[in-house]
Amino acid sequence: MSAKVSAGKQVFAIVKKDVLAELRTKEMVIAMFLFVVLAMVVFSQAFGVILNDLDRVGGGLLWVAFLFMSMLGLNRSFVHEKDEGCLEGLLMSPIDRPLIFFGKMLGNLLFLSIVELFAVPIFFVLFRLEMGASMAGIFLATIFLSNIGIACVGTLLSTISINTKTRDLMLPILFMPVIIPLLIAAVSATGGIMSGEELTEVYGSMRFIAVYDIIFLLVAYALYDYVISE
């Protein structure tokens, strides 16, 4: 047996295992996708009048839908690990704790991004929005950049919430206040793109999202060992 197991292989194995299980059941991605579309329908019915002004509120609608959808997935993400004691099995294997985090986070990031890739076109069609190709690039980049933060903070906090009595009730309470700075910046960036604002302001928000991502990646890297082992 090799003395030192490759970190890349371990992270990849975790992601692969989550993707395999998801491909088999598809329960998470489909539920998340349906949730996003349903949220859009609910918004259109609940805020019918404002929607005439969609350039300004559209970004907000999109992010509220994405945020709640991401919590669905994040909650599921550790249920598999906890239910049959797999997390203990994982902890007993010679893997560095932060690698477990990166594996789980990359999986969450992947699922989140895939669902959004399908949801964004539907959003544009449903709300009759249009966007040029170059703008669409920046738009998607903003979403992906925000996804990193969502997946990072979400993975970190769902590892905590899964260990509480209330489990999935706990995640939103912890997750939402921590994610609000990112939400503000993401809404500002996507809203800015949709209403054709100066790009410098959009870039300012994107830079903030990037800073947020980096800070919480570092926090997660430093703290995950404590989160996951006693």
């Binding site: 090799s2 295992k17 239910d83 294997s93």
Partner: peptide, 21 residues
């Protein structure tokens, strides 16, 4: 059992195999 229910027997072992190298 410390096993992933949605993976096959072989996939489970393969996963832990990668963890342990």
């Amino acid at each position: 059992p410390l096993l992933y229910l949605d993976l096959s027997a072989e996939e489970n072992l393969r996963f832990y195999g990668a963890m342990y190298g």
